[in-house]
Amino acid sequence: MTDVEDRLEGAIRALLAARADGASICPSEAARRVGEDDWRQLMGPARLAAARLAAAGEVDVTQGGVVVDAAQARGPIRIRRRVSAPGP
């Protein structure tokens, strides 16, 4: 993993940790945190970082509040912490 990919994943984790349970972020928030003035060029990598975290079970990627496959999603997405199923 490259430094930028690692920083984007870290930014997603940090942004979500600072939000209330159930709150979501836009990938642009992570891109802005990592890229500052050049954040727009990090939008694709930020979406890919979200897809990796979703595949690892850390986050859900949503559109219109519905969980979607981040790799297949077209258009705006949101990222939220994965909700754990209640224990027995």
Rank of each mutant, 00 (worst) to 15 (best):
E58V: 10
T62K: 11
A17F: 04
E58N: 06
L16I: 09
G64E: 10
S28E: 15
A56F: 03
L53A: 11
G35R: 00
E58W: 05
G35H: 08
C26D: 13
R33H: 08
V61A: 09
A54I: 01
L15P: 09
A31D: 06
D37Y: 05
L48P: 00
A54Q: 15
A20Q: 10
S24W: 11
P45R: 02
L15W: 06
T62M: 09
S24R: 13
V59L: 04
R52A: 11
D21V: 03
L42S: 03
E36C: 09
R40E: 15
Q63T: 08
A14Y: 07
Q63S: 13
A51I: 00
P45D: 05
A30C: 10
E58D: 14
S28V: 08
V34D: 03
G44C: 01
R32C: 10
L42E: 01
A56V: 01
E36A: 14
V66D: 13
S28M: 04
P45S: 01
M43T: 05
A46W: 08
C26I: 01
E58A: 13
W39P: 09
R52D: 13
D21N: 11
A50Y: 00
Q41L: 10
A51Q: 11
E36Q: 14
A56R: 15
D60K: 01
E36H: 13
A17C: 08
D60G: 01
R40G: 03
A51N: 15
L53T: 03
G65L: 03
Q63R: 15
R40H: 14
R19Q: 15
A17S: 12
R13N: 03
A31S: 11
D38M: 10
A54H: 02
W39R: 06
G44P: 02
P45W: 01
R33D: 05
G65E: 04
L48C: 10
L16M: 13
I25G: 09
I25D: 14
A23P: 06
